[in-house]
């Protein structure tokens, strides 16, 4: 149960001032002797106040300039690591996407070759010779695939410069 004495606030101020026996006087001393809550407050607050003063005096804190420099250095290193992680991730994703697209194109190309082969046979049988030579379309498949692959290879570089500006 919480039974806080109404004089605690005043008592705490006096204890913090560090001279409660002088400031408080006889009346306050009698009150502390009779009030358990205030007696506890004085015991705890006095002990902690003394320890706090000693701790402030003993605290082995480095100079502010050194702490600032260390923080700057660490912030730069972390920023660099984060940037490297981003670039590596983008490159990995791009390479994976490039490989996937290349495989897709190769698969499609193989299908197209068989289709073109069938179409060529069909055209040779049913169409005139100059129309049948329209299989030139298949000649464009390899440059097209190369162009797409080049785009995917350059994408990480473009993304890198885009993110680097940010």
């Amino acid at each position: 149960m919480t039974t806080v004495c109404e004089r605690e606030e005043l008592l705490l101020e006096v204890v913090r001032a560090g001279r409660w026996t002088q400031i408080g006087g006889e009346e306050l001393s009698s009150h502390i002797a009779a009030c358990t809550s205030c007696a506890e407050l004085v015991a705890v607050a006095s002990a902690l106040a003394v320890d706090h003063q000693a701790a402030l005096h003993d605290a082995p804190v480095p100079p502010s300039g050194l702490v600032w420099w260390r923080m700057q250095k660490r912030a730069r290193e972390e920023a660099l690591r984060a940037a490297n992680r981003t670039v590596t991730t983008i490159q990995a994703v791009s390479i994976a996407a490039g490989v996937a697209i290349a495989l897709l194109i190769l698969g499609t190309f193989a299908d197209m070759q068989s289709l073109l082969h069938g179409a060529k046979e069909f055209m040779t049988i049913h169409l005139p010779a100059h129309v049948a030579s329209g299989s030139a379309m298949s000649q464009w498949s390899v440059p097209l695939a190369l162009a797409v692959l080049t785009c995917f290879a350059l994408a990480p570089v473009a993304l890198y410069f885009a993110f680097a500006r940010d």
Binding site: L56, A59, S64, G65, W68
Partner: peptide, 22 residues
């Protein structure tokens, strides 16, 4: 900025160390 940080650090570091050590 650096100046503000250093002033703030000087005001708080010892108190912070005391708190953490206790």
């Amino acid at each position: 900025d650096e100046e503000t940080f250093r002033a703030f650090y000087d005001r708080t570091a010892r108190g912070l160390w005391s708190y953490l050590s206790r």
